[in-house]
């Protein structure tokens, strides 16, 4: 009996070592982040980006539908009114305050679906670690794309 068991055990070891050896000779999956870039799928949902119109005006009108749909209550919007002197969006209203709390966000993408103007897109940015919780509440200065320059092209 003991000999049969010993042979069986040796066979199991060989089988396991074969798996190990196989991966020993294949190309490793590990990415040397951050030296190497990570490949993302096209529909990866990362940090939000607030889009602009081609003329530079913000697409967001501060309607708050993203905040309404958000299952994690991560978004806070306070609207404000455009004036002729300070125009941020094409309509009467724009987002005076737009904040996403990344300690709460679950990246479900409902906000993107709810957005009536296509202003909100979940981008590819995933490196969201910060030194403090406060830094994880991001406002328009971070979310608005392109973040710089804040150029606004006015009509003639």
């Amino acid at each position: 009996m003991s000999i049969v068991n010993a042979v069986k055990g040796f066979y199991q070891i060989l089988k396991a070592m074969a798996v190990t050896l196989k991966y020993f000779f294949t190309k490793p999956l590990t990415v040397q982040y951050p030296k190497e870039k990570i490949r993302l799928y096209p529909r990866f949902r990362g940090r939000h980006e607030l889009q602009r119109r081609p003329d530079g005006l913000e697409l967001c009108v501060g309607c708050g539908l993203c905040a309404a749909i958000c299952p994690a209550r991560a978004i806070y919007v306070e609207a404000a009114e455009n004036t002729d002197e300070a125009r941020y969006s094409a309509t009467e209203r724009y987002a005076g305050l737009y904040e996403i709390n990344y300690t709460r966000c679950i990246f479900c993408g409902f906000c993107e679906e709810a957005c009536p103007t296509g202003a909100l897109k979940l981008g590819n940015e995933f490196a969201l670690a910060r030194a403090s919780r406060g830094d994880l509440v991001m406002g328009k200065e971070t979310l608005l794309q392109p973040a710089t320059p804040h150029a606004i092209i006015l009509e003639d």
């Binding site: 708050g64 905040a67 609207a79 009114e81 009467e92």
Partner: peptide, 9 residues
């Protein structure tokens, strides 16, 4: 109250 809040908030 103009643009201060949406009714559901």
């Amino acid at each position: 109250f103009r643009f201060k809040a949406r009714s559901w908030e």
